[in-house]
Design a protein around this nucleic acid. Structure first.
Lengths: 262, 262
DNA sequence: CGAATAGTGTCTTTGAGACAATATAGC
DNA sequence: GCTATATTGTCTCAAAGACACTATTCG
């Protein structure tokens, strides 16, 4: 290898020969699943819709734009802390929700205000937590958009690219990890789980509820992914929240089978 | 949601009330697979070893330290361009090698020089490209370490954490994507592919070469992951590089089956 | 023929998927 | 009895994995 360019650059840095970034914001792609009640003759699962949180910006050059919520990080906080802080400021959520660093974006000119990269985060939040927050402030300029609608908007900066990447990441993770739990209560029925997966990843289709059930519960590869919720006397617990026919409740155990292509 | 904190912060930013980061470096975890020839009575596959590139730093406070290669990004370049530039400066590689953003690191005090986050990259490079580069400069302070040895060193900053995350990412990706190709020639035998996977992910074990072969070639789920290399007359091409028994050559097609846990 | 790898055959068990059937409980 | 969901049964075919066997070619 060649002689150390790192050391050379350190000297430059010390003499302040080079500019420094003008700030390091974090931007958050906050996804939630909105429930859309159906009018049916008996109890049924509400439809679900994947939505993302955007805030309105008034730009003097670009007219009305929508942007991912975000804000500048401080020297005294970690990037994760900044993301949590922003989440709290925008949504009033102060819980341990799913939040995950996605990627850092910079290209010359991405922000007209200067040399401003952005550390993008993905957060998955159950709609109940957001409804509570929304009640606090109706005059807010933050709004949830179904993802197709979000992509039809005039988004600020490179936020369309970030949103595209975030959506792709969420879809991958939805199939390869147990992040579905972010959109589910602690105890849920198999229909709820299946619906979450199908809503987030439209290309996923179990087609057959019965086969989905067997795959998840009866195959050794996935043993321990889910466990039935048991009552004090060891009997399975049922829910009739979404159907007259009582449905067994399950929870994630913490074990995740490894997904692989080979 | 509450009233727009982003707008409030923008004003702060414009009045330069807050500090800005002192620089935005990229650091690269460059992995390669080293070949270790075995002395056998007939041709055989060399052993492989996963190694990472580190450079020597002389710190007045910490003594001799090893660090991930890296350097400060410029306003005029993207982060990816910076990573490629650093890669070229350290290894003289100017090819389209596998390079991928991992994560951005910052916590107060991570770099004693100031408010300096780091955008970490992972790069996977075939050893042949590095050998060529190393020949250019023997007095370099850059060196490849087998990963166990790297973890035994006194690494600068939070580079141990970065390396840990990078390794985990590479292992995940090795099983869920076709990045194995970064460590393989364009045309390879099934034994080579299997060896790459087993070396990078020790927990992966096909146990049975025969079954590995059938899985990859005969299952519909993976149809099209690999294709045999064919000569002009449509006959499969064989290699005797690593065995007297000619082995069929394969290449990746570009298709990747989706890995999922459900 | 021995060494080291390549590739096939066979058999068993498990899993995937299609499809059907029955069950539940409120209205 | 109708509705929407829950759950089990059956059958077929695909895939996984264990294990053994043959093939290749150089030295």
């Amino acid at each position: 290898m060649n002689t150390s360019p790192l050391r050379a650059k350190r000297i430059h840095f010390r003499t302040k020969k080079y500019r420094s970034p003008d700030g390091l914001p974090t931007d958050i792609c906050l996804f939630t699943l909105l429930s859309i009640p159906r009018q049916t003759k008996t109890k049924s699962l509400p439809l679900k819709q994947l939505a993302v949180l955007l805030i309105k910006r008034k730009s003097n050059t670009f007219g009305e734009q929508w942007a991912l919520p975000g804000g500048f990080s401080h020297e005294s906080e970690t990037l994760d802390e900044c993301a949590y802080r922003e989440l709290k400021e925008e949504t009033n959520i102060d819980r341990d929700v799913h939040i995950e660093q996605l990627k850092t974006y910079y290209k010359p000119g991405r922000d007209p205000r200067g040399w401003i990269p952005s550390v993008a985060y993905v957060s998955l939040v159950h709609e109940d937590l957001l409804k509570h927050a929304q009640a606090n402030d109706d005059a807010s300029d933050a709004q949830l958009f179904p993802i197709e609608e979000a992509f039809a908007l005039n988004l600020a900066f490179d936020h369309r690219e970030i949103l595209t990447d975030a959506l792709q990441r969420v879809r991958e993770q939805m199939l390869q990890t147990t992040i579905a739990k972010a959109f589910l209560p602690d105890e849920f029925t198999l229909s709820e789980l299946l619906q979450v997966i199908e809503t987030v990843v439209p290309s996923f289709s179990a087609k057959d509820r019965g086969n989905f059930e067997r795959r998840l519960l009866a195959t050794t590869r996935r043993q321990g992914l889910l466990e039935p919720v048991l009552s004090a006397d060891g009997q399975p617990v049922y829910s009739t929240e979404f159907s007259n026919s009582p449905a067994k409740l399950y929870r994630f155990t913490g074990f995740t089978p490894t997904a692989m292509i080979y």
